[in-house]
């Protein structure tokens, strides 16, 4: 059975400026299940943002396709909400009006008071209440702006929520608070989320599964790492979980070393290029009690 969101043999080539072609990524194939929180990790230039734009329908791939809920993704849609790194709020509208802008687009048949009520509810869910919601984005801090952007996206109940490094421009403390807000609202909504980040700890905290990309050009999604830490997660408690450092070390290893080693290998025709599933779970009884190494299983699916 196909997953809810299926990315199939996605290839993106750009002209390299010298008449040739630059292959950013090739034959990228992976799936995302309904209600799953998937994070994609990789170095700059590996094409993460391009994949995001293709999923959003803002860009077209050179070849390959994306199928969501049985339908091919063609062009932008309200079914795929996007939270951009730079918030992308409309600066001439107040906070509330920005969220109402999205709600009105989703429910054109609603009355103004319905739209306002719905928008206010979602702003409250990200902790924005009272006077603040009548301010313009320029009068808000970066963290508050990103909350507005998140509220706008969640208020539309998209089938897929795309987060493009949503916390990249925020300081560490604010980032932590908003990650908690995001986890809370995600827990209530059972929203399918696909997120880009550079931050390993953020990825472990938020994700059900982390996709690892090799460096570009010819980047590919090399591994899919299951996060075997039970929810609800809390940033102070997860670091005590036995799996935390095992997973973290695996990710650091990959980004630091293996993403380079695996890079730049053009794939052969016919190769599906599906990521290898990696499951690290120290809480499972090890097969050999003498073996102190993490139980690391690599299964090509």
């Amino acid at each position: 059975m196909k997953p809810y969101l299926s990315i199939e043999k996605l290839t993106q080539k750009f002209p390299d400026g010298n008449g040739g072609e630059l292959t950013v990524f090739e034959n990228a194939s992976f799936g995302v299940d309904k209600g799953e929180f998937v994070v994609i990790l990789g170095h700059s230039g590996c094409g993460k943002s391009t994949i995001m734009n293709i999923l959003a329908g803002l860009a077209d791939p050179t070849s390959g396709g994306v199928i969501m809920d049985g339908q091919e993704v063609k062009g932008p849609s309200l079914d795929r909400g996007v939270v951009f790194q730079n918030y992308s709020l409309l600066p001439w509208l107040t906070t509330l009006k920005n969220v109402m802008f999205g709600v009105k687009a989703r429910h054109p048949e609603w009355t103004k008071s319905q739209v306002e009520e719905h928008a206010t509810k979602f702003l409250a869910m990200v902790g924005l209440e009272g006077d603040v919601i009548h301010r313009k984005p320029s009068q808000l801090s970066g963290g508050m702006r990103q909350r507005v952007s998140i509220a706008r996206a969640f208020a539309n109940h998209p089938k897929l929520l795309l987060l493009d490094e949503p916390f990249g421009a925020l300081d560490a403390l604010t980032r932590g608070t908003i990650q908690d807000e995001l986890l809370k609202i995600w827990g209530q909504m059972e929203q399918t989320v696909f997120m880009i980040t550079h931050d390993i700890d953020e990825a472990i905290l938020l994700a059900d599964r982390i996709l690892l990309m090799t460096n570009g050009p010819h980047a590919r999604v090399a591994e899919s790492v299951d996060i075997t830490i039970p929810r609800p997660r809390n940033r102070t408690e997860i670091i005590e979980h036995p799996n935390y450092y095992a997973i973290r070390n695996h990710l650091v290893q990959f980004l630091g070393k293996r993403s380079k080693e695996l890079a730049g290998q053009p794939t052969q025709a016919g190769q599906t290029n599906a990521p290898a599933t990696v499951r690290i779970d120290l809480t499972e009884p090890a097969e050999d009690p003498e073996d102190k190494r993490p139980a690391l299983k690599a299964v090509n699916s």
Partner: peptide, 20 residues
Amino acid sequence: DWVNVARTHELGPIKTAFAV
């Protein structure tokens, strides 16, 4: 970015022109 906001909210060309 702002035009993309309009696009991801499925605004038509006339609406995009006036609202964004």
